[in-house]
Design a protein around this nucleic acid. Structure first.
Length: 376
RNA sequence: GGUGGAGUUGAGCAGUGGCCGCUCCGGAGACUGUAAAUCUCCCGCUUCACAGCACCGUUGGUUCGAAUCCAACCUCCACCA
C-alpha cells in the first residue's frame, strides 16, 4: 500500500517538495493552511478559498465542540458538508487553547478542564474526548491533545508538559486505532513540545517518532517568543523527526518565517496572521506589509499588488480599500483576506516551483531581502 | 418686538468656583495552532516635553483663583405677537 506521504524532492537547503493524500484530496507541500476555527475562514466563502488556491483548511475542536457541538455537526453530515468545503480539513485539538485560554482552564493528568469562554460551562477535553470530537467533525487530519506551555517557561513545568503531551499522544493514537479512525484513511499528527529546551524537544521528537504517527507537528511556538528563538526551536525539532512523514509548524508565520522554515524542512503551516490582519486593514506585498488605512493611500489608484492574480487586485484600488476600512464596511475585510490568503498561497506555490527547480536556497534569500528591504 | 433656551479649541455632548472630560470623525501602531471585522496610542499651540502657553460667543466685572458667579452686548433656535 502506497504511503500517504510522498517526498518528491529535497533541496540542498533542506527544503522538501512533497505530496500528502487525504480522503478529501491531495495536498502539495510545502503548503499554507488558512485557519477556520469556527467552521469558517473568517470573511471569505469556500468559493473564495478555492479561488485563492487553498488546498486544506483548519477547524478547531474546542470551539466547534462548544458551538454548535460536534454531535450536531455529525448529524448534519460532518464539518465538510456543514461548512460547504469539500477539500481536506485539519482540526486542531484544543491544545492551543491551553495556552490562549490559560485563565479558563485547569490542566490535569487525564486532560484539560475548560470553563467555556462563551458561558462559563465546564468542558473536559481528554484524549478520548478530543479524538471523538474530531471523528464527529470528520477531520482528515486530527491533532493529538497537547499541552502548549507559555513563553518563557521554566524547565520543570516544561518537562511535565512534555511528559503529559507524550502520554496524551499515545492515548490519542490508541483511540484512533481502536475506533478505526486511522484505518479509514484519516491521519493523526503528533505534536512536539519542549519550548526553548533543545534536549526536551529532541527527547519528545524521538519518543513520538517511535510511535509511527502519520505526521508530526512543532508545537509551543507562536506563543510570544522572539523570532530567532522561534526558528531555533523549529530547527531543534525538525532534525529529529522522520524524513518520510509530513512536518507541520503550528501557528506560523510571517512570509519570511515561512520561507526560512521551509529551508528547515517544514512542509505545512497554519497561521491566523493573513486573515486577522486583513480584517484590520493590513495587506501583504512583495515589499512588505502595507496598512491600507494610511492616509498615503487616499488617492492611490493602484491595486494592492500590481499584477497579482487575485480577485481583489484585479478589480480594486488601494484608495477604494482604504475607503471601505475607514467606512467600517465589511467588504474591506473580505477583499483583503482574499488578497492576503492568495499572497501566502502563491508564495507557497513559488516555493514549491523553486524547490523543484533546485534554486530554492538563493531564491528564498533574495525574496526575503526584497520583502524586508523597501517600502511598497 | 416679547418670552424661553443655547453658544466648550473638526462634529456631537458632559462639565455651577481650584482636579479626570466622554463619544464620534481624523492620524498612527499592534496583531503569528483566532475569546480579535479587535485592541492601543495621538488628536489647541510651542524646538512635541513628567515643560510652557492658550481656549469654553464678545467685552467688562467679582474673586487668591472663573467655562462655572455678575453685567452688558453678539449670534443661533423655539414659541408668542
Amino acid at each position: 500500500m502506497a504511503s500517504h506521504f510522498q517526498l518528491l524532492t529535497k533541496d540542498g537547503t533542506g527544503a522538501r517538495r512533497g505530496r500528502l493524500s487525504t480522503l478529501h484530496g491531495t495536498i502539495e507541500t510545502p503548503i499554507f493552511m488558512p485557519v477556520g476555527t469556527q467552521g469558517t475562514v473568517k470573511a471569505v466563502t469556500p468559493a473564495h478559498l478555492r479561488d485563492v488556491g487553498a488546498q486544506v483548511i483548519l477547524g478547531n475542536t474546542y470551539h466547534l465542540n462548544l458551538r454548535p457541538g460536534s454531535a450536531l455537526v455529525r448529524e448534519l453530515g460532518g464539518l465538510h458538508r456543514f461548512m460547504g468545503w469539500d477539500g481536506p480539513i485539519l482540526t486542531d485539538s484544543g491544545g492551543f487553547q491551553v495556552f490562549s485560554l490559560s485563565k479558563l482552564r485547569d490542566v490535569r493528568d487525564d486532560g484539560v478542564a475548560f470553563q467555556s469562554h462563551l458561558d462559563g460551562a465546564s468542558l473536559f477535553l481528554g484524549p478520548r474526548e478530543v479524538m471523538g470530537i474530531q471523528a464527529d467533525l470528520g477531520s482528515d487530519i486530527a491533532m493529538v491533545l497537547d499541552e502548549c506551555p507559555p513563553w518563557p517557561v521554566e524547565r520543570g513545568p516544561c518537562a511535565l508538559a512534555c511528559a503529559r503531551s507524550l502520554r496524551w499522544a499515545k492515548a490519542c493514537r490508541q483511540v484512533a486505532v481502536d475506533s478505526g479512525f486511522l484505518a479509514s484513511g484519516r491521519h493523526v499528527f503528533a505534536i512536539v513540545q519542549g519550548s526553548t529546551y533543545d534536549d526536551l524537544r529532541r527527547e519528545a521528537a524521538e519518543a513520538l517518532s517511535a510511535l509511527d504517527f502519520p505526521g508530526y507537528a512543532v508545537g509551543g511556538v507562536s506563543v510570544g517568543e522572539p523570532e530567532p528563538e522561534m526558528l531555533k526551536q523549529v530547527a531543534a525539532t525538525t532534525s529529529f523527526l522522520p524524513e518520510d512523514k509530513p512536518r507541520y509548524a503550528m501557528g506560523l508565520g510571517t512570509p519570511p518565517q515561512l520561507l526560512r522554515m521551509i529551508a528547515l524542512g517544514v512542509d505545512m503551516f497554519d497561521c491566523v496572521l493573513p486573515t486577522r490582519v486583513a480584517r484590520n486593514g493590513l495587506a501583504f506585498t512583495p515589499h512588505g506589509p502595507i496598512n491600507l488605512r494610511n492616509e498615503r493611500f487616499r488617492t492611490d489608484p493602484a491595486p494592492v499588488v500590481e499584477g497579482a492574480a487575485n480577485y481583489t487586485c484585479r478589480n480594486f484600488s488601494r484608495a477604494y480599500l482604504r475607503h471601505l476600512f475607514l467606512s467600517g464596511e465589511m467588504l474591506g475585510g473580505t477583499l483583503v483576506t482574499i488578497h492576503n490568503l492568495h499572497f501566502f498561497l502563491d508564495l507557497m506555490a513559488q516555493a514549491r516551483a523553486h524547490i523543484e527547480a533546485g534554486d530554492f536556497g538563493s531564491w528564498h534569500l533574495s525574496w526575503i531581502r526584497t520583502y524586508e528591504g523597501a517600502q511598497a
